[in-house]
Amino acid sequence: MSTAGASASETSYQPVFTGETMAALETLFERYPTKQACMLPALWMVQEARGWISERAMAEVAEVIGVTPAYVKGVVTFYTMYHTHPVGRNVIQVCTTTPCSLCGAEAVLRTILQETGCEELGRTSTDGRFTVQEVECLGACGFATPILVNDDFIESVTPERVAGLLEGYK
């Protein structure tokens, strides 16, 4: 997933919901009894297009859904997968919950932080290539340690595999 436009300034905001994207949302509206039920799908559309969800984008979602911007912000901040700040071109989520921790997930996370140059959780590497997040159970505990790089779900990651895996993400 690209994060094009992540640096677009708030003043020159280009709406997401125009043309095809708006048409896609209109189609979705027909599949739910309320417009508000399309909140999560609409937020996904924004993140797909922009890489993250800015305050301005939340206001746009509020307008198309028919709720207040504050309400949208309340929803966005409830869910860990929505980014409220610009992120690197590649976002890596690493599970370290108990089952994965038992199998050495912390070492995988440390290696990923080093190899990406992010050093710290949530920080984007200076080359803008990676952001690393520690997340809770990814639902693949038997294949420790799973990581999610953008939309790629990768199982059985070990510290040794990290460098090779990251090469594919520019």
Binding site: T34, Q36, A37, C38, M39, L40, P41, L43, W44, I65, V67, G74, V75, F78, Y79, T80, M81, Y82, V135, E136, C137
Partner: peptide, 23 residues
């Protein structure tokens, strides 16, 4: 319907709120 990262949305009433576009 795609969730967005929240364990509590597995609890059935949390799920219903999420589906309705709420926290």
């Amino acid at each position: 319907h795609r969730g967005a990262g929240a364990y509590i949305c597995g609890e059935e009433t949390g799920l219903m709120n999420s589906l309705e576009g709420r926290r």
